[in-house]
Computed example of a mutant assay.
Amino acid sequence: MTLLFDPQPPVLASTSDGHDYPVRRLFCIGRNYADHAKEMGVEVDREAPFYFTKWAETIMPSGPIAYPPMTGNYHYEAELVVAIGKGGRDIPADQATAHIYGYATGLDMTRRDLQLEARGKGRPWDAGKNVEQSSPLGIIHPISETGELTAGAIFLTVNGVIRQQADLRDLIHSVPELIAFLSRAYRLEPGDLIYTGTPAGVGAVVPGDEIVVSIDGLTDIKVTIAPAAHD
């Protein structure tokens, strides 16, 4: 067999114990903090999680990320990210922790104007969410190092000013519930990441702004918004 072109190399995330974590898929949970759902003008769905997916290649480490095209309203969303280390289908919530490799800080950057336009027309959110460099990810800390994260401060600053601040205990659907839910729809596999939702306080950034996401017990993710790329 002769390949027509070279395949893309795997997307690798760094871990605190010195390993590379191959990223497979991103599952992003929406409306998982009540105050954020309220600020977005939608009802809180406590019956089942709401989610969308993103490409693995949207993952970026700390550093500069380019302001994307086709938007004038690029928003930050701070997130706790769960890294799956053991696959499974129909995982009971009380066994979900055994499938977690670790946790990281993360950002779900969003072209908010395109997202809201799509939402208003009843269309998918891909143009608003699934964007190059839109999923900055901090260093993944194994659960053996952190323990199960069920509480702890999560906050985001822009140029040193706090814009988002909450506690992980405020999640509407807990991490075990999210794993159980997603594993009913898909077989979860090692390399899958779950972005668990963002607190209230989302807002726009412009080139030159520095964003820092902090979660108790984890390494910060720090990004600077760079000018739009033209290549």
Rank of each mutant, 00 (worst) to 15 (best):
F50I: 14
R123N: 12
I221A: 10
E189R: 12
M70K: 14
L193V: 08
T198E: 00
L171P: 07
D216R: 14
R163V: 15
V212M: 07
D231T: 08
H75N: 03
W55C: 09
P61L: 11
A151S: 15
G128W: 00
R111N: 01
V161H: 12
H36I: 01
T71K: 01
I59G: 00
R163K: 13
D94L: 04
A37H: 00
L4P: 05
A96K: 07
I194N: 12
M70D: 15
I154M: 09
P136C: 12
L107N: 13
L137Q: 09
P207G: 10
A127R: 14
L4W: 04
V161I: 14
Y74S: 02
T97R: 14
P190L: 07
H173V: 03
L3Q: 04
K54N: 09
Y51Q: 04
F181N: 10
D45H: 12
G191K: 10
P124Y: 02
I139Q: 12
V23M: 08
C28M: 14
H99C: 08
G85K: 09
C28K: 06
I215V: 12
D231K: 08
E132H: 09
I143P: 10
L218G: 11
V131Q: 06
L193W: 12
L80D: 02
S183V: 10
G203I: 01
I215D: 06
L137R: 13
L178W: 05
D45A: 11
S62R: 11
Y101L: 13
V158Q: 04
V175P: 03
E43R: 11
A78M: 04
P142F: 07
D231C: 03
H75P: 05
A37S: 02
T110F: 08
T71D: 00
S134Y: 03
G217H: 08
A151L: 05
G18M: 00
L12F: 09
P142C: 11
Q165I: 09
A78T: 04
I154T: 05
A48E: 11
E43L: 06
R169W: 02
N73V: 01
P176T: 00
R119A: 00
H19T: 15
D126N: 14
G191Q: 12
S144D: 15
T2L: 15
G201F: 02
D209E: 06
K121S: 06
I162N: 05
D94H: 10
L26E: 08
E189H: 12
H19E: 14
I221Q: 10
Y51H: 11
A13G: 15
R184V: 06
G41L: 01
I29R: 01
M40W: 00
P61I: 07
